[in-house]
Amino acid sequence: MPIAFNKKAFNVLYSVFAIFSCLALGKLCSYVAPALPSSLYGLMFFTLSLHFRIFDAEHIKSTVVWCLKHMGVCFVPAGVGIINHFDLIKQFGIAIILITFATTFILLTLVGLYYQHCLAGEE
Protein backbone atom coordinates (compact mmCIF):
# COMPACT_ATOMS: atom_id res chain seq x y z
CA MET A 1 0.00 0.00 0.00
CA PRO A 2 1.58 3.32 -1.06
CA ILE A 3 2.09 6.05 1.51
CA ALA A 4 -0.13 9.08 0.87
CA PHE A 5 1.67 12.33 0.19
CA ASN A 6 0.92 14.84 2.92
CA LYS A 7 1.93 18.29 1.70
CA LYS A 8 1.74 19.94 5.14
CA ALA A 9 3.98 17.32 6.74
CA PHE A 10 6.42 17.63 3.85
CA ASN A 11 6.56 21.43 4.26
CA VAL A 12 7.22 21.11 7.99
CA LEU A 13 9.99 18.56 7.50
CA TYR A 14 11.48 20.60 4.65
CA SER A 15 11.41 23.75 6.83
CA VAL A 16 12.98 21.99 9.80
CA PHE A 17 15.70 20.57 7.55
CA ALA A 18 16.38 24.00 6.00
CA ILE A 19 16.53 25.82 9.33
CA PHE A 20 18.62 23.22 11.13
CA SER A 21 21.06 22.82 8.26
CA CYS A 22 21.61 26.60 8.22
CA LEU A 23 22.04 26.59 12.00
CA ALA A 24 24.55 23.74 11.72
CA LEU A 25 26.51 25.73 9.14
CA GLY A 26 26.33 28.69 11.51
CA LYS A 27 27.77 26.57 14.33
CA LEU A 28 30.59 25.49 12.04
CA CYS A 29 31.31 29.09 11.02
CA SER A 30 31.24 30.24 14.63
CA TYR A 31 33.74 27.52 15.51
CA VAL A 32 36.07 28.53 12.65
CA ALA A 33 35.58 32.32 12.92
CA PRO A 34 34.12 33.21 16.34
CA ALA A 35 33.49 36.87 15.46
CA LEU A 36 29.69 36.45 15.60
CA PRO A 37 27.32 34.13 17.44
CA SER A 38 26.45 30.94 15.56
CA SER A 39 22.76 31.90 15.36
CA LEU A 40 23.66 35.04 13.38
CA TYR A 41 25.79 33.03 10.99
CA GLY A 42 22.90 30.58 10.64
CA LEU A 43 20.48 33.42 9.97
CA MET A 44 22.79 34.76 7.27
CA PHE A 45 23.02 31.30 5.69
CA PHE A 46 19.23 30.95 5.83
CA THR A 47 18.72 34.37 4.21
CA LEU A 48 21.26 33.66 1.49
CA SER A 49 19.84 30.20 0.81
CA LEU A 50 16.39 31.71 0.32
CA HIS A 51 17.77 34.56 -1.79
CA PHE A 52 19.71 32.24 -4.10
CA ARG A 53 16.79 29.76 -4.12
CA ILE A 54 18.72 26.88 -2.59
CA PHE A 55 15.61 26.27 -0.48
CA ASP A 56 12.12 26.89 -1.82
CA ALA A 57 10.49 29.75 0.09
CA GLU A 58 6.96 28.50 -0.72
CA HIS A 59 7.62 25.25 1.15
CA ILE A 60 9.03 27.13 4.15
CA LYS A 61 6.45 29.94 4.27
CA SER A 62 3.74 28.17 6.28
CA THR A 63 6.17 27.04 8.98
CA VAL A 64 7.74 30.49 9.26
CA VAL A 65 4.30 32.13 9.52
CA TRP A 66 3.38 29.68 12.29
CA CYS A 67 6.63 30.44 14.15
CA LEU A 68 6.04 34.19 13.88
CA LYS A 69 2.48 33.77 15.08
CA HIS A 70 3.67 32.00 18.23
CA MET A 71 6.83 34.05 18.78
CA GLY A 72 5.40 35.76 21.86
CA VAL A 73 6.00 32.59 23.86
CA CYS A 74 9.73 33.15 23.39
CA PHE A 75 9.56 36.58 25.01
CA VAL A 76 7.77 35.47 28.19
CA PRO A 77 11.10 34.80 30.01
CA ALA A 78 12.18 38.39 29.29
CA GLY A 79 8.94 39.68 30.80
CA VAL A 80 9.44 37.48 33.86
CA GLY A 81 12.98 38.84 34.17
CA ILE A 82 11.64 42.39 34.14
CA ILE A 83 9.16 41.57 36.88
CA ASN A 84 11.88 39.86 38.95
CA HIS A 85 14.04 43.01 38.79
CA PHE A 86 11.23 45.53 39.16
CA ASP A 87 12.95 47.25 42.10
CA LEU A 88 15.97 48.05 39.90
CA ILE A 89 13.68 49.35 37.18
CA LYS A 90 11.88 51.55 39.72
CA GLN A 91 15.21 52.87 40.95
CA PHE A 92 16.94 53.37 37.57
CA GLY A 93 13.98 53.43 35.16
CA ILE A 94 14.42 57.05 34.00
CA ALA A 95 18.15 56.52 33.45
CA ILE A 96 17.48 53.35 31.45
CA ILE A 97 14.95 55.15 29.25
CA LEU A 98 17.25 58.15 28.71
CA ILE A 99 20.23 55.94 27.87
CA THR A 100 18.11 53.88 25.49
CA PHE A 101 16.83 56.94 23.62
CA ALA A 102 20.24 58.66 23.58
CA THR A 103 22.13 55.62 22.26
CA THR A 104 19.42 54.93 19.67
CA PHE A 105 19.57 58.55 18.49
CA ILE A 106 23.38 58.48 18.33
CA LEU A 107 23.37 55.18 16.43
CA LEU A 108 20.77 56.35 13.91
CA THR A 109 22.64 59.61 13.40
CA LEU A 110 25.95 57.84 12.81
CA VAL A 111 24.38 55.35 10.41
CA GLY A 112 22.69 58.22 8.51
CA LEU A 113 25.92 60.21 8.28
CA TYR A 114 27.83 57.14 7.13
CA TYR A 115 25.17 56.42 4.50
CA GLN A 116 25.36 60.01 3.24
CA HIS A 117 29.15 59.72 3.14
CA CYS A 118 28.88 56.52 1.08
CA LEU A 119 26.40 58.13 -1.30
CA ALA A 120 28.64 61.17 -1.74
CA GLY A 121 31.52 58.83 -2.65
CA GLU A 122 29.48 57.23 -5.44
CA GLU A 123 28.79 60.50 -7.26
Score class of each variant (00 low, 15 high):
Ser21Cys: 02
Gly81Lys: 08
Ala78Val: 14
Pro77Met: 11
Leu23Lys: 09
Phe46Ser: 00
Tyr41Ser: 00
Phe17Gly: 07
Ala33Arg: 08
Ile94His: 09
Val16Asp: 03
Val65Trp: 01
Pro34Thr: 00
Met44Thr: 12
Lys61Leu: 07
Leu108Asn: 07
Val76Met: 12
Phe45Glu: 02
Phe75Lys: 06
Tyr41Pro: 04
Cys29Arg: 08
Gly79Cys: 13
Ala120Arg: 15
Gly112Asp: 05
Phe101Cys: 06
Pro37Phe: 04
Phe55Thr: 03
Glu122Cys: 07
Phe52Arg: 08
Leu28Ala: 08
Cys22Asp: 09
Leu25Phe: 10
Ile89Met: 09
Lys61Glu: 01
Glu122Ile: 10
Asn11Gly: 08
Ile3Ala: 06
Ala102Phe: 14
Thr47Ala: 10
Phe75Val: 14
Leu119Asp: 06
Ala18Asn: 06
Asn11Ala: 12
Asn6Arg: 06
Val65Asn: 11
Ala24Trp: 13
Gly93Lys: 09
Thr63Ala: 09
Thr47Cys: 01
Leu98Pro: 02
Phe86Tyr: 14
Ile60Thr: 03
Arg53Cys: 01
Ser30Asn: 14
Ile3Arg: 07
His85Phe: 09
Ile89Phe: 13
Ile106Arg: 01
Thr104Glu: 07
Ile54Trp: 02
Ile60Lys: 05
Val64Arg: 06
Cys67Phe: 09
Leu113Trp: 03
Cys29Glu: 05
Ile83Ser: 13
Leu98Cys: 11
Asn6Phe: 07
Ser49Glu: 02
Val73Ala: 13
Tyr115His: 07
Ile3His: 02
Val64Asn: 00
Lys7Glu: 15
Trp66Phe: 15
His59Ile: 04
Gly121Tyr: 05
Phe17Ala: 12
Thr109Phe: 15
Asp87Cys: 02
Ile97Thr: 08
Asn84Gln: 14
Ile106Asp: 07
Ile83Met: 14
Leu108His: 02
Ser30Met: 03
Ala33Val: 07
Thr103His: 03
Val65Ala: 11
Phe105Gly: 02
Ala18Leu: 05
Leu68Ala: 11
Leu48Ile: 08
Leu113Cys: 03
Leu107Ala: 08
Gly121His: 13
Ser49Pro: 01
Glu123Met: 05
Gly79Ala: 14
Leu107Phe: 12
Phe45Ala: 03
Ser49Ala: 14
Glu123Ala: 12
Lys8Ala: 15
Ile60Met: 04
Ala120Lys: 15
Ala9Cys: 06
Glu123Pro: 07
Ile83Arg: 13
Ala18Cys: 05
Thr104Trp: 10
Ile99Ala: 10
Ala57Met: 07
Ile89Trp: 13
